[in-house]
Write a protein that binds this DNA or RNA. Structure first.
Lengths: 222, 222
DNA sequence: GCAAAAGTGTTATCCCTACACCCATGA
DNA sequence: TCATGGGTGTAGGGATAACACTTTTGC
């Protein structure tokens, strides 16, 4: 059942950089390619856009297929279209990135013994295609948005400590932050609130737990 | 000479919002559609991506065809892909926006009596397809970047007055700026310098002229 | 001389940064 | 009791925002 056109058409795919926090580190989901090209190498999850679905819907579908989650933060990143980026045919890919709260990560990734896995962004394997460039673009975007919005909260679980949150900021920004200034600033935004609970772990004072007041909101700061 | 594929492929186009300053107003270039659909309506210039060219190259080509200019500021904006956005077939469009210095606007637009024209963004005609959404996205991006970068200088001619520059900022931001604070801030950035010339026009004190120190640079502020 | 836009400084406020010690706990 | 991370306030400096009058010109 071939499809014919009067002039050549490229294929169009979506690829997603799916981020979460695991063990206090920013992680990204990668899948191991089962087929050529780049067979056996790691790549961002993605797939071709169906003719009846929007780009955002295609990204949501891929996200659901790989992680089982939906309703999380998902944003179009950039479109990559170098003519030779896929050796098979011309493939233009619309890249997205998603942020998953770290307690919503049960996912297929854990169950599938092989073929899919979380990687710390500090210790990435070789990536197929132009996925290194896509992932770098995603991390740059994330770092930029963390500076001027409350987007980082999209990665936090239902209850978290201020130290965990600061940890995330420091990782994305790649530089240390003063603890007192950080707490003042975050609390002044009025986007998180104390749950009243504490977390006791290890030989030190228990940490107060906080929650995001409105999960669906990403505020621009200032 | 048909082109056949095993599964359906969308068409991929680029559309460009080309901005410049005319008569102290932000203008955008539109072309009148000569064919269906939306025949006779105004639209952003654009065209299909050729199989051997990158997306950026396609955008540059369209820009050159419509305005005769090249080497100006050009940035990918967003990719629009609603399945029904073009009634003929599935067309995914990668939108770009370009900023042209107001003294480089001789262009085809002026010579062609019909079919192409500059429009103030304050007085836009009805637009074809989803181009209202694309143009709005472009203006939002421009407004955002003006706040935290020196991108606005990409629209200024070889010599300009501080009042003209302030005028542009006020238009994009849609609110008035204090004259003294504006001058202090811009001059402190060290991105423009006095030419030594003045412009005398009208019954008032002549205005000092300034030029951009490095045209190729767009700085992020702070 | 008058109307019109160009040009020019100072002050108060707010925000950001730097910085050090006590607290509660588990072992 | 000690090692570990959790929690807290203040002061100085820099940037931002508010604000009004003089200058130069064309008519």
């Amino acid at each position: 059942m071939p499809y014919t056109y009067d002039y050549p058409h490229p294929a169009v795919s979506v690829d997603i950089a799916i981020f979460t926090i695991r063990n206090d580190e920013l992680n990204v989901l990668l899948i191991k390619r089962a087929e050529a090209p780049f067979r056996g190498e790691w790549a961002l999850p993605g797939g071709f856009v169906q003719m009846q679905e929007s780009l955002g819907a295609a990204a949501e579908r891929e996200l659901l297929e790989e992680t089982g989650v939906s309703g999380v933060y998902l944003e179009q990143l950039y479109t990559f279209g170098q003519p030779d980026r896929d050796p098979r045919e011309r493939v233009i890919t619309v890249a997205y990135y998603a942020l998953i709260p770290s307690d919503q990560v049960e996912l297929r990734a854990a169950s599938d013994a092989e073929g899919v896995g979380w990687f710390s962004v500090e210790r990435l394997p070789e990536l197929a295609f132009d996925h290194p460039e896509i992932l770098e673009t995603a991390m740059d975007r994330l770092a930029a948005k963390v500076e001027y919005s409350t987007i980082a909260l999209q990665l936090m679980p239902a209850a978290f400590t201020l130290t965990e949150l600061q940890n995330l900021y420091e990782q994305v920004r790649r530089e240390p932050i003063d603890k007192r200034n950080f707490r003042k600033k975050i609390l002044a935004l009025d986007v998180i609130e104390a749950t009243g609970e504490e977390r006791r772990e290890g030989p030190h004072r228990p940490a107060k737990l906080y929650r995001v007041i409105d999960r669906s909101r990403v505020d621009v700061i200032k």
